[in-house]
């Protein structure tokens, strides 16, 4: 369809304006981060670029430590979530078993429940089990939360998988397990990847669960570390901005390379609910 030049122009102006609104605060962070710290503290365009804030934030804020925690927690959550979601998603989509609807509903409830619904007793339960202040307290509850989305996502994916292919595999005598991992999973890799990306992002960015579950500094994840760092350096905005960039960078870089998957996943996962 033809779009008149005038309409094109208006469109670009509007899009440009709102893209700028989205970007300005983020550019502000980058400028603040490279402004030499300790000056008047006011926001200004710096004359010299100073990357020293990143070094200082890194050293003073134990961010190597925090990033390691985040990395460990995220990788563990993603691996376990993926394996269990593929298994359960396949069963809900393709196998018949007694009570499947009830079980699906129970697991799906995790998609709707806010963390506030369960975090208080969960803390006391895990404390009685002596696993608060360990990585387990960060990893296990987040697997449970991610599974709700993961199973829902994989079930939708496997339901749209051509049934004849699965029937053919069965007639050849393949077991359900072999059918799943040998026939169904390989062509579903793109959708499994999208799920992994989203779960990684949510786990990396999670704040409440680490805040409640751990108090030892060496267990803190990156967002929790930033919150504590902010508590100590409340007005040193250059240091805070550098620290924020360090923490947001891994996910933002992934996003720039795989934006299509992020956007379609985040919007599609909800709209198909």
């Amino acid at each position: 369809m033809k779009i008149s030049i005038g309409e094109k122009l208006v469109s670009y102006v509007v899009l440009g304006l709102f893209a700028a609104i989205a970007l300005i605060p983020l550019l502000g962070v980058i400028i603040t981060a490279i402004t030499p710290s300790g000056g008047s503290g006011g926001f200004h365009i710096p004359n010299t670029i100073d990357l020293g804030n990143f070094v200082e934030a890194w050293n003073r804020g134990h961010f190597a430590n925090y990033l390691f925690s985040s990395f460990l927690v995220t990788v563990s959550v993603v691996i376990v979530t993926t394996v269990l979601s593929v298994l359960a998603g396949f069963a809900f989509a393709r196998l018949k078993f007694f009570g499947s609807n009830i079980v699906f509903f129970v697991i799906l409830a995790g998609l709707l429940l806010p963390a506030e619904a369960f975090i208080i007793p969960l803390y006391y339960n895990l404390r009685s089990a002596h696993i608060t202040d360990t990585y387990w307290a960060l990893i296990l509850p987040q697997i449970a939360q991610s599974l709700a989305f993961g199973i829902f996502w994989m079930r939708n994916q496997f339901m749209s998988f051509p049934g004849e292919v699965i029937e053919a595999a069965r007639l050849d005598g393949a077991s359900d397990m072999r059918t799943l991992w040998g026939i169904v999973v390989p062509p579903s890799t793109p959708s499994i990847m999208t799920m992994c990306l989203l779960v990684s992002m949510w786990t990396w960015n999670e704040f409440l669960i680490p805040l409640v579950m751990v108090s030892r500094d060496e267990l803190r994840t990156a967002p929790l570390g930033l919150a504590f760092f902010q508590g100590q350096h409340a007005t040193d905005y250059s240091l805070l901005a550098s620290a924020g960039i360090i923490i947001a960078a891994p996910i933002v870089i992934l996003y720039f390379f795989l934006q299509r998957r992020f956007i379609s996943g985040m919007l599609g996962g909800i709209s198909s609910r």
């Binding site: 899009l15 440009g16 709102f18 893209a19 989205a22 970007l23 300005i24 605060p25 983020l26 502000g28 962070v29 603040t32 008047s40 503290g41 006011g42 926001f43 992002m201 990396w204 960015n205 704040f207 990156a222 967002p223 929790l224 930033l226 919150a227 902010q230 007005t235 905005y237 805070l240 901005a241 620290a243 924020g244 960039i245 923490i247 947001a248 996910i251 933002v252 996003y255 720039f256 934006q259 992020f262 956007i263 985040m266």
Partner: peptide
């Protein structure tokens, strides 16, 4: 390109968004 930029705030950790706006709203902030 526009879609990527418009959607960008969604993928940034909420804690980072919060510290960003804390600095924007500060007495000598942006």
């Amino acid at each position: 390109f526009f879609r990527t930029v418009l959607f960008l705030p969604q993928v940034i950790a909420s804690v980072v968004v919060a510290t960003t706006w804390l600095s924007i709203y500060s007495p000598n902030g942006l």
